[in-house]
Amino acid sequence: MDIFKIIDDFQRIDGDALGRMEFATRRHFMNRIGSKVAQVAVPTFFASVVNKAFAQSAAAIDVLNYALTLEYLEDEFYKAGNAAANLIPASDKVIFTQIGKHETQHVAFLVKALGAKAIAKPTFDFKYGGAFADVFTNYKTFVTVSSALEDTGVRAYKGQAGALLADPQILEYALQVHSVEARHAAMTRRLAATVTANPAMKGWITGKEGAVPAIYAGEENMMQGGKDLKGLASKSDAAVTEAFDEPLTKEAVLAIAGPFIKA
């Protein structure tokens, strides 16, 4: 896609279109195209104006605040982990810095999208009532919790897709975050597999394999679209379960996340 081509087409369709864009003249775009920012900013400019309506149903606001709760949790978790001395080995620093950056970006995006309707950040207890007491001093515990948070995030977003059917643009944003959580999940699962010496734990979820078993209930599902996929394409049950990630309801996710939230 070529932005100039689109502007040309705009003009062909409506010769006055550019004039009505006031400052956003072709010259202005041309001047900006030299920088990397412009390559991203110009198309997003179009998209964001189209989407400015950003119609938010009550259901969508609920979903976004639910997502914000989880993103607040992840953001604060990585901020604390990345700041802790002698926790993350130098070899893995870049990975958790990148993940932490995304969680901060997700929080900022959701806060901006929700505006005055955004919930305040809760107070968190990452020691999970003592179960992860050494989470910021023992890398093994940190990676375990990280992989669990990411996989839970994937399940949580997936569980809300249907609630956003009436809000297509918000659905799309949610999907765009959902797949990033899945990228994180695969990475942290592989780190966890190494740190906990568990080769059965791969980037994808075999059966309900994971570092914190309780949160993987249902991942072993073999039924998709009303069909039992056992034996499909002569593949193993393990492969069938890996090929599909499973959702969690909001209630199930909040039950998992609850002990992290103090108030």
């Binding site: 994937v154 977003y157 997936k158 897709a161 249907g162 059917l165 297509p168 643009q169 659905l171 799309e172 999907l175 959902h178 797949s179 990033v180 959580e181 899945a182 990228r183 994180h184 999940a185 695969a186 990475m187 980037g203 994808w204 998709q224 679209g225 890996e242 090929a243 599909f244 990630d245 499973e246 959702p247």
Partner: peptide, 25 residues
């Protein structure tokens, strides 16, 4: 995703896309 009208199909697409994202990662 947003082109789908049926919630069941949307969920199926969601179950698959995160696996593709794991592959990409």
């Amino acid at each position: 995703g947003k082109l789908l009208k049926d919630g069941g199909y949307l969920l199926l697409a969601g179950k698959i896309v995160s696996v593709e994202a794991r592959h990409a990662s």
